[in-house]
Deep mutational scan, measured.
Amino acid sequence: MEVRTIKVFTTVDNINLHTQVVDMSMTYGQQFGPTYLDGADVTKIKPHNSHEGKTFYVLPNDDTLRVEAFEYYHTTDPSFLGRYMSALNHTKKWKYPQVNGLTSIKWADNNCYLATALLTLQQIELKFNPPALQDAYYRARAGEAANFCALILAYCNKTVGELGDVRETMSYLFQHANLDSCKRVLNVVCKTCGQQQTTLKGVEAVMYMGTLSYEQFKKGVQIPCTCGKQATKYLVQQESPFVMMSAPPAQYELKHGTFTCASEYTGNYQCGHYKHITSKETLYCIDGALLTKSSEYKGPITDVFYKENSYTTTIK
């Protein structure tokens, strides 16, 4: 009895394709271990004539594949690729409408935090270190965002349907971005203890939790000093293409032309909904596939993004 075979390709990165001759009487799992086709788990399936010449994702289970996976995804987590594939199996079914010149995501599976993050990423200057993220990001900007969303979920250790947080998501993504040249110098002034300067680099240099107003941050924000008295913390120097200011959701007025974009969060910790506000020729609110415009805006804002380049204080 002759062994019926077909020729397929296996890959971990969709760049390096490895030619395989597979036995049609055995499952993919018996031949390769966990195997995925377009995100779908085909591990328990036997090869079919229609699979001839198709590319299958496999887990990096030998040295060659491990090197290829690390170079593309910059992670050695053995569960990463499987999590990416199972997320992709959902995100490829989502709709990605162009809204006001940006790629958004039609609401499904509690994905409003991903839509808000995706919209924000198209408006701030950011370059990702893992080629996987950078490639998928370019495709997302062009309207094909399924891979990018699935990668975000995998890097953030999230599953489809789980509630997510924009600030946490951005923080994970910033860790995989090139923020080497970003720098922030802060000064804390206390009447009792004097003053202390701190220099922050990388992710810490672009994120701040405690106030939404970048102007206020430049002037000074009140913080408790270690001595128990009130101290003032203010920005001395900022070198970065953008800054992200966050605070627990509270009524906040966004003035046209003073910011790049913002995240609105309605609801409580267990259950809520994100919308995205962007400042173009007027203010726009993007909620999944829905767009509304207004000249002014007041609502429960939790993150505001500002364009920056270089700032030095005039406070002496």
Score class of each variant (00 low, 15 high):
Arg4Val: 11
Thr5Arg: 12
Ile6Thr: 10
Lys7Tyr: 12
Phe9Gly: 03
Phe9Ser: 08
Thr10His: 14
Thr11Ala: 03
Thr11His: 05
Thr11Val: 02
Val12Thr: 13
Asp13Ile: 00
Ile15Gln: 14
Ile15Asp: 00
Asn16Val: 12
Asn16Ile: 11
Gln20Lys: 14
Val21Ile: 11
Val21Glu: 14
Asp23Lys: 13
Met26Asn: 15
Met26Lys: 15
Gly29Pro: 00
Gly29Ser: 05
Gly29Leu: 06
Gln30His: 13
Gly33Asp: 02
Tyr36Asn: 02
Tyr36Ser: 02
Tyr36Trp: 15
Leu37Met: 13
Asp38Ile: 09
Asp38Arg: 11
Gly39Thr: 11
Gly39Val: 06
Ala40Tyr: 12
Ala40Lys: 12
Lys44Trp: 04
Ile45Ala: 13
Lys46His: 15
Pro47Gly: 04
Pro47Phe: 02
His48Lys: 15
His51Lys: 02
Gly53Pro: 01
Lys54Pro: 00
Lys54His: 10
Lys54Leu: 14
Phe56Pro: 00
Val58Pro: 01
Asp63Trp: 07
Asp63Tyr: 07
Asp63Lys: 01
Thr64Asn: 11
Arg66His: 08
Glu68Ala: 06
Phe70Thr: 04
His74Val: 01
Thr75His: 04
Asp77Gly: 02
Asp77Ala: 06
Phe80Gly: 00
Phe80Lys: 02
Phe80Trp: 00
Leu81Met: 13
Met85Ile: 15
Ala87Phe: 02
Asn89Leu: 05
Thr91Ala: 05
Lys92Thr: 07
Lys92Ala: 05
Lys93Asn: 14
Lys93Val: 05
Lys95Arg: 13
Tyr96Gly: 02
Tyr96Phe: 10
Gln98Ile: 07
Asn100Ala: 07
Asn100Gln: 08
Gly101Lys: 04
Ser104Val: 02
Lys106Gln: 15
Trp107Gly: 15
Asp109Cys: 02
Asn111Arg: 00
Cys112Tyr: 04
Cys112His: 08
Tyr113Met: 04
Tyr113Asp: 04
Tyr113His: 05
Leu114Asn: 00
Leu114Thr: 02
Thr116Ile: 07
Ala117Thr: 14
Ala117Gln: 06
Gln122His: 02
Gln123Ala: 03
Gln123Pro: 01
Ile124Tyr: 02
Glu125Thr: 09
Glu125Asp: 11
Leu126Tyr: 00
Lys127Leu: 04
Phe128Ala: 00
Ala132Tyr: 03
Leu133Val: 01
Asp135Trp: 09
Tyr137Ser: 03
Tyr137Asn: 02
Tyr138Ile: 13
Arg139Cys: 12
Arg139Thr: 08
Ala140Arg: 01
Ala140Lys: 03
Ala140Gln: 00
Arg141Phe: 06
Ala142Val: 12
Gly143Cys: 00
Asn147Arg: 10
Cys149Ser: 04
Ala150Ile: 01
Ala150Ser: 02
Ala150Arg: 01
Leu151Cys: 01
Tyr155Gln: 05
Lys158Leu: 06
Thr159Arg: 11
Thr159Pro: 15
Thr159Asp: 15
Val160Asp: 00
Val160Ile: 14
Glu162Lys: 04
Glu162Ala: 05
Glu162Phe: 03
Asp165Val: 09
Asp165Met: 11
Val166Asp: 03
Arg167Ala: 08
Thr169Met: 08
Ser171Gln: 14
Ser171Asn: 10
Tyr172Ser: 14
Leu173Ala: 03
Leu173Ile: 08
Leu173Met: 11
Gln175Tyr: 15
His176Glu: 06
Ala177His: 01
Ala177Gly: 00
Asn178Arg: 11
Asp180Trp: 05
Asp180Arg: 08
Cys182Tyr: 05
Cys182Pro: 03
Arg184Phe: 13
Val185Ile: 11
Leu186Asn: 06
Leu186Pro: 03
Val188Phe: 09
Val188Ala: 00
Val188Asp: 06
Cys190Asn: 03
Cys190Ala: 04
Thr192Gly: 12
Thr192Val: 09
Cys193Phe: 04
Gly194His: 05
Gln197Cys: 08
Gln197Tyr: 09
Thr198Ser: 12
Thr198Lys: 13
Leu200Lys: 10
Leu200Asn: 09
Leu200Cys: 15
Leu200Thr: 12
Lys201Ile: 11
Gly202Ser: 05
Val206Asn: 05
Met207Asp: 03
Met207Glu: 06
Met207His: 07
Tyr208Lys: 02
Met209Asn: 09
Gly210Ile: 15
Gly210Thr: 06
Thr211Gly: 02
Tyr214Thr: 05
Glu215Tyr: 04
Glu215Gln: 06
Gln216Met: 09
Gln216Leu: 08
Gln216Phe: 04
Lys219Ile: 11
Lys219Gln: 13
Gly220Val: 02
Gln222Ala: 10
Gln222His: 07
Gln222Val: 12
Ile223Gln: 13
Pro224Phe: 09
Pro224Gly: 09
Pro224Asn: 15
Pro224His: 11
Pro224Ala: 13
Cys225Ala: 03
Cys225Phe: 03
Cys225Asp: 00
Cys225Lys: 02
Thr226Gly: 14
Cys227Asn: 03
Cys227Lys: 03
Ala231Gly: 05
Ala231Lys: 08
Thr232Gln: 10
Lys233Trp: 08
Tyr234Ala: 08
Tyr234Thr: 12
Val236Gln: 07
Glu239Arg: 11
Ser240Phe: 04
Ser240Gly: 06
Ser240Thr: 02
Ser240Glu: 05
Pro241Tyr: 01
Pro241Cys: 05
Phe242Thr: 06
Met244Asp: 06
Met244Trp: 12
Met245Asn: 04
Met245Trp: 01
Pro248Val: 09
Pro248Thr: 09
Glu253Ser: 10
Leu254Asn: 07
Lys255Asn: 07
His256Gln: 13
Gly257Arg: 01
Gly257Cys: 03
Gly257Trp: 02
Thr260Phe: 05
Cys261Met: 04
Ala262Ile: 03
Glu264Ala: 06
Tyr265Trp: 12
Tyr265Gly: 08
Tyr265Cys: 10
Gly267Met: 15
Asn268Lys: 12
Tyr269Arg: 15
Gln270His: 13
Cys271Ser: 04
His276Trp: 09
His276Glu: 05
Ile277His: 04
Ile277Ser: 04
Thr278Val: 14
Lys280His: 10
Glu281Trp: 00
Glu281Ala: 03
Leu283Glu: 04
Leu283Met: 08
Tyr284Lys: 07
Tyr284Gln: 01
Ile286Val: 15
Ile286Phe: 08
Gly288Thr: 03
Leu290Asn: 13
Thr292Gly: 09
Ser294Trp: 13
Ser295Thr: 11
Gly299Leu: 06
Ile301Gln: 03
Asp303Asn: 12
Tyr306Cys: 07
Tyr306Thr: 02
Tyr306Glu: 03
Lys307Asp: 10
Lys307Arg: 10
Glu308Tyr: 06
Tyr311Asn: 14
Tyr311Ala: 08
Tyr311Gln: 10
Thr312Asp: 11
Thr312Cys: 10
Thr314Leu: 11
Ile315Gly: 13
Lys316Ile: 10
